[in-house]
Design a protein around this nucleic acid. Sequence first.
DNA 1: TCCTTGGTTAGACGAATGTCTAAACAGACA
DNA 2: TGTCTGTTTAGACATTCGTCTAACCAAGGA
Lengths: 107, 107
Amino acid sequence: MISEPLSEEAAVELARGFKALGDPVRLRLLSLIAARRGGEVCVCELTSAFTLTAATISHHLKVLRVAGLVDCERRGTWVYYWVVPAKLGALSQLLDASPVVAAGAGG
Amino acid sequence: MISEPLSEEAAVELARGFKALGDPVRLRLLSLIAARRGGEVCVCELTSAFTLTAATISHHLKVLRVAGLVDCERRGTWVYYWVVPAKLGALSQLLDASPVVAAGAGG
DNA sequence: TCCTTGGTTAGACGAATGTCTAAACAGACA
DNA sequence: TGTCTGTTTAGACATTCGTCTAACCAAGGA
């Protein structure tokens, strides 16, 4: 859980991450990617899991990527996406109910 | 970490929570409230921590409340807010990078 | 070179968001 | 009752968001 008030700067940065997660499509995209621990998922596979257009999926993937939650790489014809665990972990810790004695939380 | 794809329904519900967290003001409000573990914070105290109007703060608090992240109670003249740990914990778990489950969590 | 497939970018448009001012509601007190 | 303080609600307005279609870029194969 949050143990001390956030600075405005920290709040802006963290809010960017949560904002990216605040859409059902992006959350499902992330779950499809993250479900493959350490693995990668082709965009074509992600697109086929929705009834939305490829352009819309690409847009959502870009939002996730700009937020630093996922990263990608083109490999020949296809583009593969994977999650960035450190970024997800940072957001998770903020909400975690178990005390995390990290980051010199003075108090 | 997310270990399996989310259903559309689950994604919609969870996205509501993350969306509420996706604003710097709301994130700072939550941190101000959550920093008092089990405690409560008066709206007047929250409002004075920002340069925004009381109406705007009230609006953001309502967003957090509708999302189930905080709850409140009027007590005489003042209104007090507190966090709902269970809700924060649910969101945290989804992103948690250190899953308690070892391998083979089939389902 | 041209064509085909996979994926992204650009532009448009209705819906939702964040902020404000003004007004209303709730309680305390003279 | 009236008035003051604390908080929420209503309405307005510019900005941002999610989606689409159309166009473009990247790679492979004839």
